[in-house]
């Protein structure tokens, strides 16, 4: 164990460089650059608010805040796992030629998206001013929510990165799965109706919904359930563990398949 921590510490500058590279290249040659990470969620939230608020008649004042919280968290999960999924194949040239700890590729892909996500959280301020929502002491719910989200995303990312080396189909299958997870996470509708029906388990056992609901309870000021506090943590840690073990076991075979 110590060997791994030492190895990681020795190479932390490389991880930093890979993360920065992701951020720099994402917004290179766009005029607004990193400001896009703020504008984009605001614009999509406006669209979603018009569609699901105005047209579908959700007249709640804080509906935009409800949507933007879910959307920000889900889109980090989406971009992070997609990036990790492709990471080993995308860096095939480098993997074949120089030695870099292989988990750096999925990890850096997720971390750079995490930094963009962290920056984009700024948009919660103008949105809550617009909806006249005052933050309370419950804002601390955001901290576990964000930690769980990161852990779960890294775990999923490691699993997907490994699978995608052996089966290219995963990249496409995962896009479909993401769409399914999005609809199952109550991003732009209220979950009450579904929770009362026989389909409540879709939300209850979906870690993404639990994480998003935990974050929302902090921002929109409602009490948190033990379930939301514990289930996504355990789910995330187990996913991370599986991801690490699976990745480690298969990483020496990568080079034969890419």
């Amino acid at each position: 164990m110590m060997v791994y921590i030492k190895g990681f510490w020795k190479r932390r500058f490389l991880l930093y460089e890979l993360v920065i590279k992701g951020i720099r290249l994402k917004y290179r040659r766009s005029y607004l650059g990193i400001i896009w990470s703020l504008i984009e969620p605001i614009l999509t939230t406006i669209v979603l608010t018009i569609v699901f608020g105005t047209l579908f008649g959700n007249k709640n004042r804080d509906f935009p805040l409800y949507i933007i919280t879910g959307r920000l968290m889900f889109s980090f999960f989406q971009e992070g796992t997609k990036n990790a999924c492709k990471s080993i194949r995308a860096n095939a040239g480098m993997i074949k030629k120089v030695y870099v700890p292989k988990y750096f590729y999925p990890l850096s892909g997720i971390l750079f998206n995490f930094i963009i996500f962290a920056i984009s959280l700024i948009v919660l301020f103008p949105t809550s001013i617009y909806t006249k929502t005052v933050p309370t002491h419950r804002i601390w719910h955001l901290i576990p929510a964000i930690c769980y989200l990161l852990v779960f995303t890294i775990g999923m990312g490691m699993i997907l990165a490994t699978l995608n080396v052996f089966f290219r189909d995963i990249e496409y299958l995962w896009n479909v799965a993401l769409l399914m997870i999005m609809y199952m996470s109550a991003i732009f509708y209220y979950p009450e109706k579904l929770l009362k029906s026989g389909w409540f388990w879709i939300l209850k056992y979906n870690p993404m919904f639990c994480i998003i609901d935990l974050a929302r309870s902090g921002i929109l000021n409602y009490s948190v359930t033990w379930w939301n506090l514990l289930y996504p943590m355990i789910f995330g840690l187990v996913t991370l563990l599986i991801g690490i073990v699976f990745f480690r076991k298969k990483q020496d075979e990568f080079i034969l398949h890419i």
Binding site: R11, L14, E17, L18, M94, V98
Partner: peptide
């Protein structure tokens, strides 16, 4: 900087 980091 990137390649230098790759080389350790």
């Amino acid at each position: 900087y990137l390649y230098g980091a790759v080389l350790g």
